[in-house]
Design a protein around this nucleic acid. Structure first.
Lengths: 341, 341
DNA sequence: CTGTTAGCGCGTTCAA
DNA sequence: TTGAACGCGCTAACAG
């Protein structure tokens, strides 16, 4: 490592005081043009770059925001995180901010310790919380300490906080409506476990669309899966073993939809023709399976979360602290009008 | 935000000097047990947490390492990304280090500016460079400035630097050997563009295995694809239109392998039986396609890179600065013995 | 227009 | 065993 060039170095080299050097470089107007030129030139020549840590300490602001990913284990993959990081990163770059990232398994002591560390160690100015939980200790803590934060996702607590979330209800409403418009009347749903908040919203959209169309929301056509491909297979087996089978199945995520596709194919059904299937997420394999699905606006959420937090840090009042972004319906071949009644 | 508790606060509360408080909390031995207790208690009661920025400035060390992801655009997805972050993050947590993350499109001015900023702004102690390029400006810069860094990937420059890479040659060697052991003699390869370093290594392993088995490395059985699914389709079409078609196709990545599978199926070939196909990466859809492939040890690479960098920062000599990690062969149904000669 | 003084919060001499 | 003084590098208030 080369030895560090500081303001002092330049001060000595030019004969001016440290303060003058600082002001010249910062572009203050009360500096003689000639001295500014001298200072700027030697700064350039010496390759001066301000020590950001020192600046942070003085300004009491790090221009850095934090993000703690709820990661778990070696084969950790979450289809959203690439995208949300890209969204956050791009927006951050525009604002000239940095991102401090940690990964910790969700719900443990480690995780909370990481939050405390970043917040109380004053390494960051604000925090983005992702994958909110129904009862979320992190939100409770941040609210208590008055630290600026925004969330990806809603929660079920008696705390007011700014968030952005995908509008699962609107998404499933549109998707169900679309299936109805194709002529389907026997529509089943593979839901996620009821404890999950997003599952509730999606189910609500599904039921509402049926109701609005005057169709019954039949209990035996609502089954549950654990969001995995296997879960989708089990659920699809349940549905397809019924006396009266549905002509369309709507799964709470793509993985389960793909599981359902596998099962249906095994039973000799042609997807799209004999049975329509749709999912949620638009994960990469969805395209390979020609799966109709809802694409989450994750990148946009990342960008907007960052903007929201930035405003908060600037004390700019947030016009709308509760934003719902509607997923985009991606229509592929897995959903088509029903052939046989 | 609550008002900040600093050493000064505790000093005033206990009546001791800031220095004593500092030493008591830091666990120095030259502090009376009684005063240490008093100080620790009130520190606890007041909820003291050291200001990390101030500590950084004084220690001239940030205990933070940097990572700049070569991301590009909204729909940016890199299958490795999650995994390597998880690996780096887990290891970092063990060392008590933080991670400063940026995303920038590769090769641009922005990217280099981001490197300079982190390095010269002294926000970080070391850097992990991922997705190395054949001629890599980042490596040249870091080498020039003498800043500690490690790389995921090799390069083709006259610079000595520590790296970890997947051993594509060994991987493809093993995979090819495996196909040969199944009885295949007509093996084709869909390579990546020659400019890419990893493509060279993989091809080398492929050719070497053929040679070692006394099989010819026929030119018309080596075609090129742009790593996309579409590229795999085109390449497979080329191969399957030949007078003498191969009984096995080895693709430089899973996406192209999946493209090849699609094409082969369209032509009425049964995968595994009429034509064996294998890929590289083990991306999630690979399992859905029962694709034999090579799984990259990304998580391990992330961990080991972090460890390597950490050692470097501690001035612990790195035993082996050039590590190659062998991919793991995942055998699925897409590769089977050839039926018809 | 420029320099002196002071302080951000912490750790580390050195003297008492 | 404790405290005063100093410096990390930068910025801001105040004088001149």
């Amino acid at each position: 490592m080369k030895s560090h060039i500081t303001l002092k170095t330049i001060a000595r080299a030019t004969g001016f005081s440290i303060t003058t050097v600082s002001r010249a470089l910062a572009g203050y107007s009360d500096v003689a043009e000639s001295t500014r030129t001298t200072i700027k030139d030697t700064a350039e020549k010496l390759g001066y770059y301000p020590n950001l840590t020192a600046r942070q300490l003085q300004r009491q602001r790090s221009d850095t925001i934090g993000l703690i990913l709820p990661a778990h284990g070696p084969r950790y993959t979450d289809p959203y995180f690439n995208t949300i990081i890209a969204g956050i990163g791009d927006q951050l770059a525009e604002f000239g901010l940095d991102l401090l990232l940690s990964t910790h398994p969700p719900g443990g002591n480690d995780e909370m310790a990481a939050y405390r560390r970043l917040v109380e160690g004053r390494s960051i100015d604000g925090l983005i919380v992702v994958r909110t939980r129904i009862q979320d200790e992190r939100i409770a803590y941040l609210d208590r300490s008055g630290f600026p934060f925004v969330c990806f996702g809603r929660s079920d607590m008696d705390i007011e906080f700014p968030y952005i979330d995908e509008d699962g209800e609107a998404g499933f409403y549109e998707l169900t409506q679309y299936l109805i418009s194709l002529g389907h009347t026997r529509i089943a749903c593979i839901s996620a476990p009821e404890g999950l908040l997003f599952a509730r919203y999606r189910m609500a959209g599904f039921c509402k669309a049926l109701e609005d169309a005057g169709l019954p929301c039949r209990e035996e056509w609502i089954v549950y899966g654990n969001l995995s491909r296997k879960g989708g297979e089990n659920a699809a087996n349940q549905l397809l073993d019924l006396d009266e089978t549905p002509t369309a199945i709507l799964a709470a995520n793509d993985l389960m939809a793909i599981g359902a596709i596998t099962v249906a194919k095994e039973k000799g059904l042609e997807i799209g023709k004999d049975l329509s299937i749709a999912g949620f997420d638009d994960i990469p394999p969805a395209e390979l399976y020609s799966l109709t699905t809802l694409q989450q606006p994750i990148y946009e959420i990342g960008k907007q979360l960052t903007e929201m937090l930035h405003n908060q840090l600037q004390n700019i009042p947030i016009k709308n602290p509760h934003i719902l972004l509607k997923p985009r319906l991606i229509i592929r071949d897995s959903t088509q009008p029903p052939v046989n009644q």
